[in-house]
Design a protein around this nucleic acid. Sequence first.
DNA 1: GAGTTTGAAACT
DNA 2: CAGTTTCAAACTC
Length: 452
Amino acid sequence: MLRRCLDFELVARRKNLNDGSNCSSSVMLQSDERFASEDMQLVPLKPSNDSPRCILPGIGLHLNALAITSQDNKNTKHETLSSGRQLSLPGSTASFHSPKSSQDPLHESLTSASTERDMVAVETGVPPAEDASQTCEYLVSEERRLENAGETESCKRCNCKKSKCLKLYCECFAAGVYCIEPCSCQDCFNKPIHEDTVLATRKQIESRNPLAFAPKVIRSADSLPEPGDESSKTPASARHKRGCNCKKSSCLKKYCECYQGGVGCSINCRCEGCKNAFGRKDGSVLMETDGEQEEDEMETCEKSMVDKKMEKTEIPNNEEQNPGSALPTTPLQFCRSLVQLPFSSKCKPPRSLLAIGSSSGFYTGNKYGKPNIIHSQSKFEKSLQVAPEDEMPEILRSNCSPNSGIKTASPNSKRVSPPNTGFGSSPSRRSGRKLILQSIPSFPSLTPQHLK
DNA sequence: GAGTTTGAAACT
DNA sequence: CAGTTTCAAACTC
């Protein structure tokens, strides 16, 4: 059901259509038809390679970043086909692709669409984190978003009273979705009717923080921690992008974004008395050094250790999958980053989350499904067997330099000083790669030769 | 369901 | 950039 539809991007797209953009009208029409007829399956905007403008600024799902648990993933797979479009926000984040794993024809088509978009981006060399106005925003995974939305339909929506749902306070807005019926918001402007306002606001927010709409949790490995399971410690790779700043919740309540996202705290966190069940800031869980040593004491030391560890585990992968903390890493990471965990019952990671998750299901399932990052990578390669990792970089090198135009400054710097962890370090550089990677997964068939 | 607590987001 | 205010979700009762 397409109840939720925010498709800021979709709207934008339509506008473009009106503009007589490069997108072929026929395509657009087709798209529309599809939307209408099929629950907004992702419309393949068949983008002419040279028409970046088809891409509009979209709203990203970030909360979305909340990943889905493995269970969620399973569900998502089923539901994914059922419908909806999801919006991925490519702009600042990356675009999420539909799972390639899906053999569904629909998926394929969708995937292609997304991929194409991605490719466009790559070709244009526009960095994802670039200014929203300039950034090619990919309409990716929209189709799933709705479905996800539908999935979480029962979940509660926002309840904004003063923000007009035009600030990040609003979960819907933050997630890149329009408010819909279930929302209890007042004076809501986060509706298709006010698309201009929404887009403008979004743009403004992004100008302030390019990653504002990016997934909050970065995850490279996908071990879905199960609540209560000690062994299910959050993989070092899964961490909140900016980290939390909890003072009283001990990172044991959903007030904590890390906890809410189902990930452990990291050195990025400035929390006090961290007891995050998914991994403490001091790395006790992560490092498996149980002790509850004084944070102060261990902090320094552990931070460095954690860093190293993270680097070892993540960097290799991240190189291609994910940009650092600031930039959304691989779609997968973002998507899956947040584990729904214990909250799934409440459906809290809102639709956005789901949407993304579903869209990125591919990654999740294949690449991130494995706890071991390295392992997963090999798996990833095997499963994808598409554009070998090595080759993609080459493509990118030529077309989209990692450094090309991407903002290096971490938007999150405000709160988090970019740690040298695998996450944070040079977002810009990685972001470039990220794009590439993203496209790859979506375009399984896309090989270097194709690109050529 | 009302009131409180919490921490992110926004503002100064 | 630090401190403060605003906001809405999370939580408690």
